[in-house]
Each structure stands twice: as C-alpha cells, then as structure tokens.
C-alpha cells in the first residue's frame, strides 16, 4: 500500500506521526461520499439532468409542442434521434422538456415536506403530551389512506397545474419526515446539553431550533433526498392516470401514458420507451445517491 500513497496527509496519517486532521461532521461525510463510486456516478448523472432541464428552458432541437414536426409514429433516425410521437411531435425535445416537471416536482415536494415535517416533528417531540398525541393521531390517519388516491382527490379538488400537483403529493408524503424528526427530538431533548441550555435560561424556540434541530439534521437531510424519488414516482403515476400537468406540456408520466396505446397496438413502442427509461434511470440515480448520502452522513443508521 505504501507505494500507492500520494496524498501527504494520508502519508502522515499512515505513519502515525501526526494526529489526523480535525474535520467537521460535514467534511467527514463529504469525504465518505466521494469514495462511494456508485453514489458519485448517480450524482454526476443528476447534475447532467439538471443541466438538460435548464437547457430545455431556452433551447430544444424542435418545438416540443409543435404537431407535425415529422411524420406521426416516425421511428428513431434521421433528424429525430428518438423518433416522433402519435401527433408527430419530436420525442427528444419532449423528453428534454419533461425533465423540468420531474425535477420541479421532486425538489419542491422535498422542500415542502422538509419544512412541514420538521416543524410538526419538532413540536410534537419537544412538547410531548397532548400536542404530541394530536399530531401522532393526525399522522396515523394519513397513514391510513393510500397516498396515490389522496393525491388524485386533492388534485381534482385543486385543479390541474404544476403547483397543485406539488401540493397534492406533499400532502401524502410528509408523515415519514414528521415521524423521523419527532423520534429524533424525543431522544435529543433528554440529553445533558439540552438540560444545560434550559438551565441557562434558553427559551423553547431557541432550544428546539438552536440545539435540537442542528443535532438531528443528518437523518433529516437523508430523508429529504429520499422524498425526491418518491415524489417523482407519484407524479409519474398521477400523470400516467391522466391527472398530470395540463397538455400540451410534456412530462414523462404523461408521455408514457400517450405512448401506451401505440405499444399495445404493437406498432411503435418507442413513444413509451423513452420516458419510461428516463424515469427509471432518474429514480435509480436518486435512490443510489440517497443511499450514498445516508452511508456518508448517517453512518449509525442501518437498513
């Protein structure tokens, strides 16, 4: 091994002459993340995906919504590398634009869930008693209904639109975050440093957000990354069932839905294949990346 050492700090560490450099929790986690090749590859793919999404805001090979860009059901080839759909719209352009919806739904839902779940969890875990009982009952009730159906009902109630999809999905996936944060708060509030803070006269708000939250942040962030693929999957299910962003705007679930008849008819599987592939790879990447984050920042938790 000694021949392979090129990094001076590693050398010193290996030699045992110098104590290991003091690193913060975050830098330590980042280093562990960088060593995980699978998670790193997934991360690079996700960055590329964001870039594609940004590019598609200003440029796509063809107008994604223009009907008759080429022949209907045109197979991949020529000026249209991924072919065209049942209305003669360029599949590559639509696939690129579809990135926006998936990313927007994933990230926005994750942020909403983070805010709602953390606040509910912290309040329930810190104040305990009747507050906790009320929130726990609410969480249990939400666990008692199939999430997709609630999302459909909310979507129909609120009306079509990207923001409403995000709200509908957030309403069905916030419970895990709340439960996790509540558990963390319950255990951290018993530790000595919280007692010390209380003895020092800190108010509840300062204790909850200044002392408990920072110490619970690792698992919370990991959970937030796992919300993203769940939200993207739910959004794809919704639009696959016909409750997606209103047409003609392209999104992967809706594209798959439009491609289903031509697959079942047996004449053009590609219309469905591309969005299905894009969705699958993206969800895989988010799951791998989330796994890597968990191993890096939350090493005590085992699954």
């Amino acid at each position: 091994m000694a021949t392979a050492i090129t990094n001076p700090t590693e050398f010193e560490y290996a030699g045992g002459t110098v104590a290991r450099e003091q690193v913060s929790l975050w830098r330590d986690g980042l280093r562990r993340l960088r060593r995980n090749r699978l998670a790193l590859t997934a991360g690079i793919y996700l960055i590329l995906l964001v870039v594609v999404g940004l590019i598609s805001l200003v440029w796509t090979p063809y107008n994604p919504n223009r009907i008759g860009t080429c022949e209907t059901y045109a197979l991949p080839g020529g000026g249209h590398p991924l072919g065209c759909d049942d209305l003669g719209r360029d599949s590559l352009s639509r696939l690129m634009v579809g990135t926006q919806v998936s990313l927007a739904v994933g990230v926005a839902t994750s942020v909403i869930v983070l805010l709602v779940g953390v606040v509910v969890g912290l309040v329930a875990g810190y104040f305990r008693g009747p507050v906790d009982a009320a929130f726990s009952l609410l969480i249990n009730i939400f666990y008692g209904v199939p999430p997709l159906l609630v999302a459909v009902a909310l979507y129909v109630l609120l009306g079509a639109g990207l923001v409403n999809i995000i709200i509908a999905i957030s309403a069905t996936v916030w419970m895990d975050m709340a439960r996790l944060t509540r558990g963390q708060a319950l255990s951290i509030r018993e530790r000595e440093f919280i007692e010390a803070a209380r003895a020092g006269g800190a108010r509840a708000g300062k204790i909850v957000f200044g002392h408990i939250l920072p110490n619970a942040l690792g698992p919370i962030i990991v959970q937030a990354t796992f919300v993203i693929p769940v939200a993207i999957l739910t959004a794809a299910f919704l639009s696959f069932l016909g409750f997606g962003v209103p047409p003609p705007r392209a999104d992967w679930g809706g594209m798959a839905n439009e491609g289903l008849p031509s697959l079942q008819g047996g004449f053009d599987p590609y219309i469905l294949l591309w969005p299905a592939l894009a969705l699958s790879i993206t969800l895989l990447a988010f799951n791998f990346f989330g796994d890597g984050l968990r191993d890096a920042f939350d090493p005590r938790q085992k699954r």
Binding site: F237, F240, L272, A276, S280, L283, N287
Partner: peptide
C-alpha cells in the same frame, strides 16, 4: 432489488406487454 423499487410498475407492465404480448 434496487431496480425493482426504482422502476415504476407501469414500466414493468409495459415491458411485459411488449415481451409476452408481442
């Protein structure tokens, strides 16, 4: 297993139709 819980069920279903039905 990871593919299993990453790939949406409608994708698996479509693949099934494509492979077994066609």
């Amino acid at each position: 297993a990871v593919i299993g819980y990453s790939v949406p069920s409608f994708v698996i279903a479509s693949l099934g139709i494509l492979i077994f039905g066609q």
